[in-house]
Design a protein around this nucleic acid. Structure first.
Lengths: 225, 225
DNA sequence: TCTCATTTATGACTACACTCAGATTATAGA
DNA sequence: TCTATAATCTGAGTGTAGTCATAAATGAGA
């Protein structure tokens, strides 16, 4: 054998490692959860401070106090890690955006409120946003990533669809339209603009300025006549 | 020195290398063009047969009969190569799609015709399409890539906008709408569906089946009343 | 308590995109 | 033609994501 690492002691545990505690509810499972949490936490910090590209998997493993190989038992790839880091936060962000709607506002204002919130989030770290969008755009067969994506999409599409349904109830919007289908279109308009911004084809301002008329144009198609 | 490569003879020239022809119009420039053509050709063949991920830059360089280092003087990255390979073909494809429009067809049919053509193209090699979409989605600062993207987008947006303008001339569509803005929205709807397909969130059939109603919904917003 | 099978962890190793210091080749001027 | 300079080329080298054979930890049954 070739020299073992001498660490594995100063771990930032959640205060739950009483050496001989052979608790009934499997130690393995808890260890795994803890380790996963440490990994995501380490990745979040490093991605946040150094940026995605500048962070090596070695560093993440070191910070999480595990071997490099172990890292890839918990995340299939470096980009997988990014999605892990991002998912919860983004879901929370969009949920908050849907929740805090000013009462009685129009559909367009509601949509803009949601998208504005997301934009603020994306703007916090452009590199991170780029890496993420690149990754989230076409996830490989890797099923774990895909289910993450689906969870995120459900929140966003579902939220927008709810706004549409509310509009239908007031009678302002056509009744004969599938809300989910409309939600997808709205999101598509947001997304393609976002890509333009992150890809450098447009500035943030241009992106935001064009978003509203685009959405208005799309909404025209679903208002009741 | 460490042994020079003994090749550089069996190159598939365009039949223009008469050894002593010190032509007035710089040999350098022509060599460069030829080399670039060889590189793109080699990349196209290898990506097409082995797939993007399975092709190494070494192989491309070998096939193009140049050093590995040289490859990166002509393309900033492996993905850059992919865009090079793709651009011309895709532009030709979309131009053809816009060109061969059956006379007198409705906007929705025209759009579907364009998108169907693109889908056929994408379907030829899913892996290639995925790699490309991933790449094209958020290109890095690298300006050459961005201008490629812009060229492609101009063709597509421009083509769709032309369809809209034609519709406006017949009076069927509202006059007060920016055709380019509408074009972007239409493309967004296509694109987000494409991502879903390539990302495994939907089958090709689902993608195509949903495309039409989505577009119809968007068109509703621009028909004259 | 002691097997022993199964799960989990490890880091040396591998493969490959990309770099760089130095070699080679083209051109312009004498 | 020869020389100097600039442009172009090159492949051994580098850094890092991801693998894999081997080791350690765990828990069920005796």
């Amino acid at each position: 054998m070739v020299e073992r690492k001498e660490k594995r002691t100063s771990v930032a545990h959640a205060g739950a490692e009483n050496k001989h505690e052979s608790a009934p509810t499997g130690r393995r499972e808890r260890n795994k959860q803890e380790k996963l949490a440490r990994i995501v936490e380490a990745a979040k910090e490093l991605f946040g401070t150094k940026g995605f590209a500048e962070t090596t998997t070695q560093e993440i493993a070191e910070k999480a106090d595990i071997g490099t190989g172990t890292l890839f038992l918990y995340a299939k790839s470096k980009e997988d890690l990014l999605v892990m880091v991002f998912k919860d936060e983004m879901i929370a962000t969009s949920q908050a955006a849907f929740g805090k709607q000013p009462a009685g506002s129009s559909l367009i204002d509601q949509l803009m409120h949601v998208f504005d919130t997301m934009i603020v989030y994306h703007a916090q770290d452009l590199d991170l946003a780029k890496a993420l969008i690149r990754e989230i755009t076409v996830p490989p067969e890797n099923s774990s990533r895909r289910s993450d994506l689906q969870a995120l999409m459900q929140v966003i599409y579902g939220g927008i669809a709810d706004l549409v349904i509310a509009g239908q109830k007031t009678g302002k919007l056509r009744q004969d339209i599938d809300p989910l289908l409309v939600a997808e279109s709205f999101f598509a308009i947001y997304y393609i603009g976002l890509l333009g911004w992150l890809g450098g084809l447009a500035t943030r301002r241009q992106f935001i300025n064009r978003l509203r008329p685009r959405l208005e144009c799309a909404i025209e198609g679903i208002v009741a006549h």
